[in-house]
Each structure stands twice: as C-alpha cells, then as structure tokens.
Simulated assay, not measured.
Amino acid sequence: MRINFDVSELAAFVAVAERLNFRAASEALFISPSALSRRIDRLEDALGLRLFERTTRRVALTEDGRHFLAHASDALASLENAISDVSERAVRRTGVVTIACIPSVANHLLPKVLTTFAALHPHTRIRMLDQSAPLVLQAVSDGTADFGINFLGAQDPTIDFSAVVKERYLLAVPAGHRLAGQRAVGWEALVDERFVSLASGSGNRMLLDNAMAQAKARPVAHVEANHVEGAMALVRAGLGVSAVPGLALSGSSPADIVGVPLVRPSVSRTLGLISRKGHQLAAQPAELAKLLIQSLRSSASILTKSKVTDSRPAADLR
C-alpha cells in the first residue's frame, strides 16, 4: 500500500492516542483542535480505517487504532533517531574537535598547530584540555576528548598508544647557576641544591621518583609546583632548580634558563598519540592529530640540535 499521508498526520495520531484528548494533544502540538481533527481525518481516509471512537464526552482507540499505534510510535522513533544521527554527523564534520594534552605540549606546540588547523577549517570549533597526564588519559578513555598527546597510556588496555618521540628530562637551572656550564649532572650533585619538585600524583613526579630511587643520593624538595610551567617560573625566579622535560625549555633563552642533561640515572618519557581502543578518528580529529605529530617530530629534531644541548653528549628528544 502506498503511503499517502505525511509525518505531521502520523504525529497527530500518536499525540491523540497517548492522551485520548484532542484539546490536550492540540496544545502539545501547538495547533488548533480543528486543525488536529483535520489531520486525523486525512490519516483515517488514507488508511481506510477508523482509528478513534469519538463522542462529545470521550475519545477511545478502536481495535485498528490500537494495532496501528505500536507501528506508528516505532516509525516516529526511528525517524527521530535517523534525523538525530544525521545531525550529529553534520556536527562532527563542522562541529567540535576536542584534544587533551599535557601542558608542555599545550604551551609550546599546540598554539601553532591549532592556528594552521583553524585556517584549514575556519568553521570547526576547537576544545583544548590542557591537563595533567592522568587527567589527559581519563579524558580520552571516557570519550571527553577525541584523542590526546600523553606519556601515559601504553599499559592501559582501553587505550591505543602510538609512540611519537622520546623526550629526555633536563635539570633546569638559572643561567648564572654553578651547574649551568656542566655537560651533565648526576642526581647526587643536587643534594645540597634547593630543588623544585612537581606535585605528588602527577605523571612527571612518578617518573622522576622512580629515577631518583635508583640514584646514590637524591635531592630534598624545598618547593612544590603542580605543573612543569609553574616549576619553570620558580626556577626563573631563582628559587631553585628542577627536573623538567626537554620540551619545557624550547621557548627559553639560554641567558635565562639552561637545561643540563641528568645522568646516573638519566630519565626520559615517550610522548605518543592516545585514543580509545579500536576507535577510528573522524576526518578532522585525524587531520589535527597528523599536524600535531608532525610538529612534535619537528620539535624533537630542533631540540636535539639546539643551544640547550649543542655542547653536551645527550639529546633532549630522540
């Protein structure tokens, strides 16, 4: 049988069937009772069936009406789902791309990458979650972010981790500090230094604590900062020295802060692209991820040859 009625008539039938009251249904649909009645009449004519028993005092579904209601409700729900799905796909194409990344990447690499991406996709909104490594991992795992850049996640069974670059930790010291001219510094040499530590529970702190546990002697934290950028600011102010990833020094002048390779033991972290296990990135998030990976690799190459390490045997990023 050819369908010769429209969706508005189907919606009118469902509204009346659910309320068994024409006035209440008309108010729900924001049309007049007479307009609603005409829609029901057209639907009944198209079907060749009476769907309601109507008197001045009551409205009731006929047997055919009750049978048709189940199919009509399912049809409307399926149509609404189809419209919602198409709308969501359209939003994903020109909607929002969410990236979660650790602060050192957010501060030193992401602005330039996002500028390039925004020029290519001016109508796409960008949401940046610059958070600690555990929170970046959580944002990707629970779907808040499309993808992330992190050094945690390789051992997480819910995460796909694609390594991009290996980044070495350096001792950040003021330019005039006694250790600034050293080719490398062992942890035991920091015992008498005022040491700026990162907050307990942070991903960086966990890596550094594991390294210091292997050292012959370890420094005592005199000051604690939540993030690497905060630790760098404290070093810059002369409050102490700190172990930071090489990327954190990429924007610093050697006349301001110097990075000295840490040894006995050396410490490094692998930065990678993380996404939900088995999840394929949509076109725009995938494009942004590609741009960011290119920037990370380019930065790694520049830092390896930079003034921070040009006279020293160790590279910041490999």
Rank of each mutant, 00 (worst) to 15 (best):
T144N: 04
A145I: 05
A145D: 02
A145F: 01
D146C: 05
F147H: 01
F147S: 00
F147R: 00
G148K: 01
I149D: 09
I149T: 10
N150T: 04
L152A: 09
G153L: 02
A154I: 10
D156I: 00
D156Q: 01
T158C: 08
I159P: 02
I159S: 07
I159V: 13
F161Y: 15
S162P: 04
A163M: 13
A163L: 09
V164S: 09
V165F: 09
V165L: 11
K166V: 14
E167W: 05
R168A: 15
Y169I: 05
Y169L: 12
L170E: 01
L170Q: 02
L171T: 10
L171Y: 10
L171Q: 12
L171D: 12
L171K: 07
V173T: 07
V173D: 02
V173N: 01
P174K: 01
A175R: 02
G176E: 06
H177N: 15
R178K: 13
R178N: 07
A180Q: 05
A180C: 12
G181I: 00
Q182M: 14
Q182R: 15
R183C: 03
R183I: 05
R183K: 13
A184G: 15
A184N: 14
V185N: 11
G186R: 05
W187R: 03
W187K: 08
A189F: 11
L190M: 06
D192R: 08
D192V: 10
E193A: 10
R194M: 13
R194E: 12
R194C: 11
R194T: 08
S197P: 09
L198T: 11
S200K: 08
S200N: 13
S200W: 02
G201Y: 07
S202T: 13
G203Q: 00
N204A: 12
N204M: 07
R205A: 07
M206W: 03
D209A: 09
N210A: 13
A211D: 02
M212T: 01
A213E: 08
A213L: 10
A213S: 08
Q214S: 06
Q214H: 04
Q214G: 00
Q214T: 01
A215V: 02
A215E: 07
A217V: 03
A217D: 08
V220R: 14
V220N: 13
A221V: 11
H222R: 14
H222A: 13
V223C: 12
V223H: 13
E224A: 10
E224I: 14
N226W: 06
N226I: 04
H227A: 10
V228G: 02
